[in-house]
């Protein structure tokens, strides 16, 4: 607490972009020809999908960083990025489900994209559970880094699932397949979610780092109170 951190500025910009992007997406961008207003889910579902995968990529890099350096900084970054990725993936599935009911006619189906995304969420939830189960800080860091690297296999599988297998979910959109009036709103919303995710990863990383450092070397004040 106390002094403002660099991520506060990033988070503030993210919130402003989120407001601007949602205004553009809801009021300026055109309706979708087939889906009408339902198509506006594009501006939240797609950014959340991109940034959830990016968060898991940060967790993967942090796991590799821990293997080579063995420092609490990398371990804390891994913990933080996995948690932010889990929250974003949960949001991704909820938003997709809301869109699926009026468009596909069902809330959920076990198509390759939805199934692999659900498995990805469960795998990273497993990483967070593992961190709660292991008491020794070094074992916890190493084991959860192994689990993070293995869970990360899901990320390319989710991305390519719509190309590798027949699915109900559509393949990736690109500026060629999205109306120019919608692309700008999508870009602004994507940067908004990116900046907000950076804020949460950085803030959660600070908290995790402080907690890990205290765990490894309890502050003197705590030692005194234990003796008394």
């Amino acid at each position: 607490m106390g002094m403002a951190k660099w991520e506060d500025a990033v988070g503030a910009i993210g919130l402003i972009l989120l407001g601007v992007g949602h205004y553009m997406g809801l009021f300026i961008a055109p309706k979708e020809a087939m889906m009408g207003d339902v198509g506006r889910i594009l501006y939240v579902h797609v950014p959340v999908a991109w940034i959830s995968m990016l968060s898991f990529l940060v967790a993967f890099v942090a796991a590799l960083g821990y293997f080579f350096r063995g420092t609490t900084t990398w371990d804390a970054l891994m913990e933080s990025a996995v948690e932010v990725g889990v929250v974003l993936t949960s949001l991704l599935l909820a938003l997709g489900s809301l869109w699926a009911r009026p468009t596909w006619g069902v809330w959920w189906d076990w198509d390759p994209r939805l199934t692999t995304a659900a498995v990805m969420l469960l795998a990273f939830l497993g990483v967070t559970a593992l961190r709660r189960l292991v008491d020794g800080p070094e074992q916890r860091a190493t084991w959860s880094a192994v689990a993070t690297v293995v869970a990360f296999v899901n990320v390319p599988i989710v991305y390519f699932s719509v190309k590798w297998w027949r699915s109900l979910h559509q393949t990736q959109s690109s500026p060629k397949t999205v109306d120019p009036g919608m692309v700008t709103s999508l870009r602004v919303c994507a940067f908004a979610v990116l900046f907000i995710a950076i804020f949460f990863i950085a803030r959660r990383w600070r908290i995790a780092k402080t907690r890990l450092e205290n765990e490894l070397a309890p502050p003197e004040a705590l030692l005194d109170s234990e003796e008394a």
Partner: peptide, 24 residues
């Protein structure tokens, strides 16, 4: 007893002068 309608990866604005309600 389970019919699912696919949506493509295309997101298009309605054509000029044709409101979405008319399309429906």
């Amino acid at each position: 007893n389970r019919l699912m309608v696919k949506h493509s990866n295309e997101y298009r604005a309605p054509q000029d002068g044709v409101p979405v309600e008319e399309l429906y």
